[in-house]
């Protein structure tokens, strides 16, 4: 126990440093606000009329929710994805400027340094998810305190997995510029191919679905883990699940462990 306390203090120190850096970076904070504004206020409001009911008996949006409600959990996931994966820039930064070398020669084990960094990144990303939650009234999403707590816990799990994923990516890229381009080519395709902005009718079979959408797109959505990650948050926030929620929860939990160990393998090399 006495051996473990210094490690805990070390993890706390690294976590606090990441939090301070995230909260002092006004650019990152502005990014956390501008994404929900663009996606929810502009895209959501702009497309909402095209999904609304016009004649009783006819549906355009196959789910019993309006488009803003449908989009709301996906915008939270988008904000978390950007903040988590972009967090890895700090790893490149630390590597470039020698901070990482200094920390890694300290008595703290390598896994504890990584854990502190990832917890810091996940906390910042969860904070950015919470910023979107503030817009719940605008999207006409009514939340109970329990739902808010559940959502925050799940958002933290997702942030942790994605932050580790970002660190894995950072291990493959050597420059800031390269990482910026690389992360966008990962985040946006994952997001768009995840049934986040358009619904797959849950009542349709796969055969029926491929009548509406091309088969390759349906296949892409079904193999995309973000599809299931968004689906779990939809279940918590608007009570709608397209897939059994344990799939998404299982994938996120597995992602936390697998990506952490993958990140640890490349961390500080």
């Amino acid at each position: 126990m006495t051996d473990f306390l210094p490690i805990l203090r070390g993890i706390h120190g690294v976590w606090l440093r990441e939090i301070m850096r995230a909260t002092r970076d006004r650019g990152q904070l502005l990014g956390g606000v501008s994404r929900p504004l663009i996606w929810l206020l502009i895209l959501g409001v702009g497309l909402n009329p095209y999904f609304r009911g016009e004649v009783f008996g006819e549906v355009r949006l196959v789910l019993p929710y309006n488009y803003l409600q449908f989009l709301f959990p996906a915008v939270i996931v988008l904000n978390i994805m950007y903040t988590s994966i972009q967090f890895a820039v700090s790893v490149i930064w630390d590597r470039e400027f020698g901070f990482l070398r200094e920390v890694l020669v300290s008595p703290m084990p390598r896994w504890a340094v990584l854990l502190g960094k990832v917890l810091g990144g996940a906390t910042a990303a969860t904070g950015h998810g919470i910023l979107v939650l503030i817009l719940a009234r605008f999207a006409d999403v009514t939340l109970t305190p329990l739902e808010v707590v559940e959502a925050i816990i799940y958002m933290f799990m997702l942030s942790f997995a994605l932050t580790c994923f970002g660190v894995v990516l950072a291990g493959k890229v050597r420059s800031f510029e390269g990482f910026g381009v690389f992360s966008n080519t990962v985040i946006l395709p994952l997001y768009f191919a995840s049934s986040s902005v358009f619904p797959l009718d849950p009542s349709l079979t796969r055969t029926q679905l491929v009548v509406t959408y091309p088969e390759w797109l349906v296949a892409l959505i079904r193999v995309n883990p973000i599809t299931y990650a968004v689906d779990v948050l939809r279940g918590i926030l608007i009570g709608f699940n397209q897939f059994p929620p344990y799939i998404g929860l299982g994938l996120v939990a597995a992602g936390m462990v697998v990506f952490f160990f993958m990140a640890l393998r490349g961390f500080g090399k």
């Binding site: 606000v33 206020l41 409001v45 803003l68 503030i134 817009l135 605008f138």
Partner: peptide, 12 residues
């Protein structure tokens, strides 16, 4: 505060 204020914008 800015986000909370935006909640009072009409969505439609």
């Amino acid at each position: 505060a800015l986000l909370a204020a935006l909640n009072f914008l009409p969505s439609d």
